[in-house]
């Protein structure tokens, strides 16, 4: 499970460098998220641009990644492809996360 990380101001951008977040990698994803986000800034934006398939195990892993953050830290999402957006909408999880069209939009939000 490849994740890459960069910082823009006080926001950490974590980009999923895989096409799928599914049952086969859900636990790895959650563990890698913990490693990559450890000690970082309060706000994390998860960039899902490269992900074209997610199942409920992958969705659960993203929820778990948010729940494992220390108090005061947030996890927003950006660049959902249509297949990923569909899973968030069907399960109503789109009401829980801040969701932005792009990294730029997500970063602009934290500056405003």
């Amino acid at each position: 499970m490849n994740l890459s990380s960069s910082s823009v101001g006080a926001t950490q951008i974590i980009t999923v460098e895989e096409a799928r977040i599914d049952a086969a990698v859900a636990i790895q994803f959650k563990d890698r998220m913990r490693e990559v986000s450890d000690g970082g800034p309060a706000r994390i934006v998860l960039n899902l641009r490269n992900v074209d398939f997610i199942d409920s195990s992958g969705l659960g892993a993203i929820v778990a990644a948010m729940k494992q953050l220390e108090d005061g830290r947030t996890l927003d999402l950006c660049a959902l492809t249509p297949n990923v957006d569909k899973v968030f909408r069907l399960t109503r999880m789109d009401t829980i996360f801040g969701i932005f069209d792009s990294v730029d939009d997500a970063v602009a939000q934290s500056n405003s």
């Binding site: 409920s56 659960g60 929820v63 778990a64 948010m66 729940k67 899973v87 069907l90 829980i96």
Partner: peptide, 13 residues
């Protein structure tokens, strides 16, 4: 957030 479900979506989907 602490009580969000991490599963149980399968058959609903």
């Amino acid at each position: 957030i602490a009580n969000l479900p991490e599963g149980g979506f399968g058959w609903f989907l």
